[in-house]
Design a protein around this nucleic acid. Structure first.
Lengths: 151, 151
DNA sequence: CCTTGAACCTCTAGCGACTAGAGATCCTAA
DNA sequence: TTAGGATCTCTAGTCGCTAGAGGTTCAAGG
């Protein structure tokens, strides 16, 4: 049996976050001591590790809850787990592509006029003017369209 | 003079978000019609475009406010703008590196046992067991250490 | 057995960056 | 003049935590 602090130490999940997960239904309510303190089983430790790992992989809590509900599932139900992984992987790929174009543009801005500021430099303009962008980072996130941006 | 809806249409920033930016001091309070509706100048449109672009680059609002305060600055003050760009670029680079290792792991999970679920498949285990990870994605984000994770 | 102090408890509120809704008012074109 | 889309203010909700207040419990040392 582990105290909540022991769980935190072993998984790297902070104590308030563990209680938060319990409140959100991701962790089952643990046993309590006579003095009302939480005592966790090894299974609970494993599940917290699962949550931690999935969170690190970028999964939102509802998706993690969905995965947990698949515990012990067989057959077609497991397709859901694969789906979640695939969807997350594709989302990550899109984020990578988008960040790479942002990185190019930030590099451009960071090196604009190379630190010589005897006259007005382009760094602020570089932030505001998308026309000068080397890349198409707006197009990368479909929910945001700059089509009508005409300053 | 532009209405708030026109500003939204031209920049892609949603109407409530424009009001939110005003409330946060990123946009100056615009003129109003007799009926209390906002009317924006071209300068305000430009600034909103600036904010939009900087947000897309991942800058937090306080950093954007700092950049705005540099408007018209000369000399050393502009170093601050370069600093912000460099810091953001480096942050983006770290995020890319981290996401790439996550992508590898999600791919591994997504393709675990290849859709044949006649028996218990490894996808859930793959989510929970970091031992099997191909990459070191925990180490990528220094604030989270898995050193003591022993399930 | 008693004390001390670290760890635990519940509860509320706050973060960032919006987003959604209610209910009221305004503007514009037919 | 009227209809209906756009706008107004205000509050509350989202996500995934995090921090703090104020109180209780546990475990080790004396």
């Amino acid at each position: 049996m582990f105290s909540i602090g022991e769980m935190a130490r072993r998984t790297g999940v902070k104590v308030p976050t563990i209680r938060f997960y319990e409140q959100k239904g991701l962790l089952p309510e643990p046993e309590r001591t006579a003095g009302n303190q939480r005592r966790y089983s090894k299974a609970a430790l494993g599940r917290l590790g699962f949550i931690r790992h999935a969170r690190d992989l970028g999964l939102p809590l509802p998706d993690i809850a969905a995965l947990i509900s698949l515990e012990g599932a067989k057959g077609d139900a497991l397709d859901r787990a694969h789906d979640i992984a695939r969807i997350q992987r594709d989302a990550v790929r899109r984020r990578i592509a988008r960040l790479q174009s942002l990185e190019r543009e930030l590099s451009r801005i960071a090196t604009a006029c190379d630190g010589r500021h005897d006259h007005v430099c382009a760094v602020l303009d570089a932030f505001s003017e998308h026309d000068r962008c080397l890349s198409d980072h707006y197009a990368a996130e479909p929910s945001r369209d700059w089509i009508n941006y005409t300053p």
